[in-house]
């Protein structure tokens, strides 16, 4: 771990001021990802700004009927909050599919959005990686890429975003509230993370000096027809090979609204409005789900070891939509996949 200064921010404005004053500074809340990367010398902040005591822990109903979640709410508190369990069970399920109970107790909602890729080459400072050291190239491209991206990749990076929570937030149409030197702004969760392009070192569109203050969920909750299905190499405590968040509104067997997002396949949670539109007004059948899957996976490309992910994702999408349609969401504890 490198030498760094430590400051405790007294409020959001103080955090922004400290961030702006020191371009090498980083915010720390739960620390579950940042400390890990600092121990690997992947992250070498000049200063840690401790925001863990800022008053960003509220979960409040918004005037419009949605929910505003403070950026420092621990993942577990969010998953088990009555509002989330009852109104946004897709989000609760996705959170509980990630990490471990201990890590969920530590990790903040804002930090979850900021977690970095688990690509082995990104983690190993002896190998080239353009995300870690811009311009050095992508070792995964011709290396061990079994768990790398199949969508939205660039010639510079094929890393994936490892978050489960973000996949559900993408499907639910969440907004990210941000405060910064030039005031406050909000962006859609789906616009928060970036594709790697020629700047793979940038994971998100968060500007310098900016801090996530809250996540906002819109009123539409999908309490009945939803499911989060995570496929991985062991049955718990592992990152997704593919994960699917699906949510439907049904009138009889007809789909009036559909949401669909993928995790583990791209540099960001992968959502396609076209795929969702194709489901609206259709019957909830495997054929229609398969068509939506094809649309969502349009343009998927495989590397040397991750070709299986395309077919796996397709099947997982159909299955998750079936679970959602039949109101039998995947349990994160009981591992049999209905």
């Amino acid at each position: 771990m490198n030498n760094f200064d430590y400051s405790r921010a007294s409020d959001v404005a103080d955090a922004i001021r400290l961030l702006t004053a020191d371009p090498g500074a980083k915010l720390i809340a739960g620390g579950t990802n940042l400390i890990d990367l600092m121990k690997e010398n992947v992250e070498r902040p000049s200063r840690l700004i401790d925001i863990s005591r800022l008053p960003l822990r509220a979960i409040e109903e918004t005037a419009g009927g949605g929910l505003r979640i403070g950026a420092l709410v621990p993942n577990s508190d969010l998953a088990y909050h009555p509002f989330i369990e009852q109104r946004y069970p897709l989000l609760a399920s996705a959170i509980l599919a990630g990490a471990s109970a201990q890590l969920r107790n530590m990790a903040s909602v804002g930090g979850n959005l900021m977690q970095r890729t688990r690509c082995a080459y990104f983690y190993d400072t002896t190998t080239p990686c353009s995300k870690r050291s811009p311009g050095t190239g992508c070792s995964a491209m011709d290396g061990l890429n079994r768990n790398h991206a199949i969508l939205g990749t660039s010639q510079f990076c094929i890393a994936t975003n490892p978050s489960d929570m973000s996949v559900a937030l993408a499907a639910l149409g969440a907004l990210v509230h941000i405060a910064g030197p030039s005031g406050q702004r909000s962006i859609a969760l789906t616009d928060f993370h970036r594709l790697p392009g020629d700047k793979p070192h940038l994971d998100t569109n968060l500007g310098s000096g900016e801090i996530i203050t809250a996540i906002e969920l819109p009123p539409q909750t999908f309490v009945r027809n939803y499911s989060y299905l995570k496929i991985r190499d062991r049955l718990s405590y592992a990152f997704a090979l593919v994960s699917v968040a699906a949510a439907l509104e049904l009138e009889g067997n007809a789909i009036s609204e559909a949401r669909l997002a993928l995790g583990g396949v791209a540099h960001k949670p992968w959502r396609s409005l076209e795929a969702e539109a194709a489901l609206r007004g259709k019957a909830a059948t495997p054929d229609h789900f398969g068509h939506a899957a094809d649309l969502l996976l349009q343009g998927a490309t495989a590397g040397s070891h991750n070709g299986f992910k395309i077919e796996l994702a397709r099947r997982a999408i159909v299955r998750t939509l079936m679970q959602a349609a039949s109101a039998t969401p995947q349990s994160q504890a009981h591992k049999k996949i209905a």
Binding site: Y121, D124, G143
Partner: peptide, 21 residues
């Protein structure tokens, strides 16, 4: 990774051993 002659999952997050589940 035989290009580097280096073990790429030298940890216990990516070298999977069974967990309780």
């Amino acid at each position: 990774d035989h290009r580097f002659g280096r073990i790429m999952n030298a940890n216990i997050a990516e070298y999977h051993i069974p967990v309780n589940a």
